[in-house]
Amino acid sequence: MIMNEWIVYLLFAAGMFFLGLYCLLTMRNLIKLFIGIEIIGKGVSLVLLSTGLARKSILLAQSLVVTYIVLEVSLVAVALAVIINLYRANQSLDIRSLTRLKG
């Protein structure tokens, strides 16, 4: 029974991954791209916590999720700082203005 519940959460978490990846692959605004990353992040924390629930070790999973959220804040701060600097350098948030490097 508890395993079935896990599958339901994983189903929706996969939906979040899909949304995030769709955003990353199709959008052009840098901030929008980062919103995609955030959505993937939510999917990941849902996977972590629901795994803990399925394993009956919700406390452990909870502490992992808290740590993960702290990591995420730090990452968001750095990424948004890079985006602001990019905007200052290019006067644009369009990914198509990032063509200096060949990739």
Binding site: A79, L86, A89, N90, L98, L101
Partner: peptide, 12 residues
């Protein structure tokens, strides 16, 4: 601009 662009792609 080049450094920032590289950092952004790397980060993503």
């Amino acid at each position: 601009a080049e450094e920032l662009e590289a950092a952004f792609k790397y980060l993503m």
